[in-house]
Simulated assay, not measured.
Amino acid sequence: MLDANRSGTATASPRAAATGLAVPAAVLTPPLPRPGAVARCRRALGSPHARLSLLFALLAGAGAAVLVFEPQRLLTHGWPPQLGGLAAAVVFTLAYGLCTVAFVPRPLLNLAAGALFGSQLGLTTALAGTVLGAGVAFGLGRVLGQDALRPLLRGRWLRAADGQLSRHGFRSMLAARLFPGVPFWAANYCAAVSRMRWWPFLLATALGSIPNTAAYAVAGARASAPTSPAFLIAMASIAAPALAGAVIAWRKRHHLRSRQAPAGSAAPPSPATGPRARGNDRS
């Protein structure tokens, strides 16, 4: 509304002025820019399934590299002559760790460590390579695979393994390393997908791998004398944990089957309560 002042001019009232100056907030707020192609690609590559695909690609590349370079030739051709001493041990440790990530069996690598460096240095390099390879596999599985694989843990056995590793990580991994039954790479990636922490995993791997690694290193160092007491003791140390692991796995499986029996299933009739016994009672 217009108010007349003393000079005769008309002025707008404060309410009208406020109403006239009010601008919608949508006009003042600029539209948000749409994400560009780079941002969309970054978001797609950062998704859990994209990271899982990258993990599979890395593992496939590592396996192909093993098939091309054939690290098992170390047992037959020996170590390159230009490498020796501490440099050879460091290079072998790095190669050992990468080979375990690429699914090369650890017994083969442990035998090569003993044959190339002897019992003591072979055990040291093999253990260092074991911890290195386990740490690399655990890190790859945790960063690239955990977010995509955890929603898939729906089976009874998968949930039981995940709960065991998440709640009792150290002792579960220690048992897996002491008794050879679970493949080395499988234990690494299962622990990575679970909620197990880094330090219990690495410590259990280091401690649990000592007996088996030492036995293989001694066997590799004394392979030229298969009738020597050291070689025979090493072979017995390899066979004993394998047999004990098989017995424990069989008993655990039998125990789990008995616990998973349906609660409503009727027990088989005993001789005293069977149909013949009931007929005798009626007579």
Rank of each mutant, 00 (worst) to 15 (best):
N5Q: 02
N5G: 05
G8D: 09
T11A: 01
T11I: 00
A17W: 05
A17D: 04
T19W: 05
T19D: 09
G20S: 13
A22E: 15
A22I: 11
A25G: 11
P33I: 10
P33R: 15
P33L: 13
V38E: 14
C41R: 04
A44H: 03
L45P: 10
S47I: 10
S47L: 10
S47N: 12
P48T: 11
P48G: 12
L54A: 04
L55T: 07
L59T: 01
G63Q: 12
V66P: 09
L67V: 05
L67S: 07
L67R: 06
R73G: 10
L74A: 07
L75H: 14
L75V: 14
G78W: 15
W79G: 11
P81T: 13
P81D: 14
G84M: 03
G84E: 07
L86V: 14
A95K: 08
L98V: 04
L98G: 10
L98F: 13
C99V: 08
T100G: 06
F103C: 01
F103G: 03
A115G: 08
G118K: 05
G118A: 07
S119P: 12
L123H: 09
L123W: 12
T124E: 10
T124D: 10
T124L: 08
L127T: 09
L127A: 08
A128T: 02
G129E: 01
V131K: 04
G133T: 14
A134V: 00
G135D: 01
A137H: 03
G141P: 11
R142G: 11
V143C: 03
L144W: 05
G145M: 04
G145F: 07
D147I: 02
A148R: 06
R150C: 02
R154Y: 10
R156G: 09
R156S: 09
R156Y: 06
R156E: 13
W157G: 09
W157P: 05
R159M: 04
G163V: 04
S172T: 03
M173T: 15
M173Q: 14
A176L: 15
L178Q: 14
P180Y: 12
G181E: 07
A186E: 07
A187L: 13
Y189D: 01
Y189E: 00
A191Y: 03
A192M: 04
V193K: 05
S194M: 02
S194N: 05
S194V: 03
M196P: 14
M196H: 15
M196S: 15
F201L: 09
F201I: 03
F201T: 05
L202W: 15
L203P: 13
A206M: 09
A206D: 10
S209D: 02
P211V: 08
N212S: 15
N212I: 07
N212K: 09
T213A: 03
A214C: 07
Y216P: 01
G220F: 00
A221R: 02
A225N: 12
A225K: 08
P226I: 00
F231E: 02
L232Q: 06
L232W: 03
A236M: 07
A236N: 05
I238C: 06
A239N: 01
P241I: 04
A244S: 08
V247P: 09
V247A: 11
V247K: 06
W250L: 02
R253G: 15
R253K: 15
R259L: 11
P262H: 11
G264A: 08
A266F: 01
A266R: 01
A267H: 08
P268I: 00
P269A: 02
S270Y: 05
R276Y: 11
A277H: 14
R278M: 10
G279E: 05
N280P: 06
D281K: 00
R282E: 02
